[in-house]
Nucleic acid binder design. Structure first.
Lengths: 209, 209
DNA sequence: CGAATAATCGACTAGTTTATTCGAGGATTT
DNA sequence: AAATCCTCGAATAAACTAGTCGATTATTCG
């Protein structure tokens, strides 16, 4: 089901590069923090290097370019999001709670991701269509999860939906609508409240009476 | 008592520049948001102008330089902080609550101000000693407030302090110590909890038994 | 109207920053 | 000792940025 963000794990590994992957990961995490704070453009290689206590040039031993690091960071974050989502819906039984958890975790994560997007809207960045690719894959994946939640809910006689596919699409659209203010507003206003309200409407239109 | 951040209010005002001060204020507020997010150096004039939907050069009609805007922003924020502090301690009667409110509001505001400081530690910035001046004045002011709270608390037989001046100094030192992690850490960790703990210790060492 | 002042903006510049390269040298394994 | 791994300072070309200037448009007022 989760077919995005597959990491390549080459088995062969010379004894030399024992720490290399380790170091790449350390760079990804460190850079990710800075990227998420300042965005792509405002983050400098010097900062990344300094945070890792390395020489600026040393980073180029592990990554080819700044964009490469950025891509790795986005992939990494996507993996984390995926894990958070699955554990969030596994952690509860009732379909309503599953849906609630999913929506909350998703929106919380997107608040962080918003910074990446802000960074990208800045300029040309034709090179960054790989993010669109990830996004598309993620959309498909999300749709599958939503459909599954709806399906289980229906089987448990908690939800009553005519067509789980189209209902899932509708929910996804709503969530995307909720993303917009996250991107454009700095004020962390009533997102939680709005979420609550939307969930309320959603359930009252869905829950079998 | 509040002798910092006095704004000059020249009465004379030609009919032309009715909106000029208004506009300056708008710039200050808008720029303040960006500065607080990205710091001084990472904020560009282009961004400030764009946020105001103006040409970059138009800003120079209202301010002489980027540093000038920054100075105005800091002054403005200091005024806001002052107001918040006074209303916070006026809003309650009991000395303990006054102290609690003061400390909480202070620390909350400093979280925002931390970004300015981060921006300044970045480079030479010899020009920014005016911030140190503000800081010094603010320190004196803070000491006066603390002493007043302590004094009233003592008169109400809630506090028992030997020397309000030195006690105020001790409290101020503690609060400054609490600022440090705000400056250097990005993780928004247990500040609130630590504050609570410190307040607890403070009161249990101060409150008359 | 028309002149004077207010306000805006595009184009330009000089100085700075930044991502990236390169090669030399230290460290570690074989 | 040779080979491979890793680090870093110095150099650079391209991009960016704060600030300037003159031209232009809007607004006020006689």
């Amino acid at each position: 089901m989760f077919y995005i963000c597959q990491q390549d794990n080459p088995i062969q590994r010379s004894s030399y590069m024992i720490n290399k992957e380790e170091f790449r990961k350390r760079i990804i995490i460190s850079a990710g923090q800075i990227f998420s704070r300042y965005g792509f453009k405002k983050t400098t290689m010097k900062e990344i290097a300094k945070a890792l206590k390395m020489g600026k040039s040393s980073i180029y031993y592990y990554f080819q370019s700044k964009e490469d690091i950025f891509a790795a960071v986005v992939l990494h974050e996507a993996n984390i999001l995926r894990n958070e989502l699955t554990t969030a819906i596994k952690s509860v039984e009732s379909p309503i709670d599953k849906m609630k958890n999913y929506v909350f975790v998703r929106m919380k994560s997107f608040e962080k991701l918003a910074n990446y997007y802000n960074a990208i809207f800045d300029k040309n960045l034709d090179h960054f269509d790989f993010i669109e690719t990830i996004r598309e894959k993620y959309d498909r994946e999300e749709l599958a999860i939503l459909r599954l939640i709806l399906y289980h809910g229906t089987r448990k006689k908690v939800f009553t939906v005519a067509n789980s596919e189209y209902t899932a699409l509708a929910i996804q659209t709503t969530l995307k609508g909720l993303e917009v203010p996250l991107f454009w507003k700095r004020k962390e206003l009533n997102i939680e409240n709005r979420l609550e309200a939307i969930l309320n409407v959603l359930f009252n239109g869905i829950v079998k009476k």
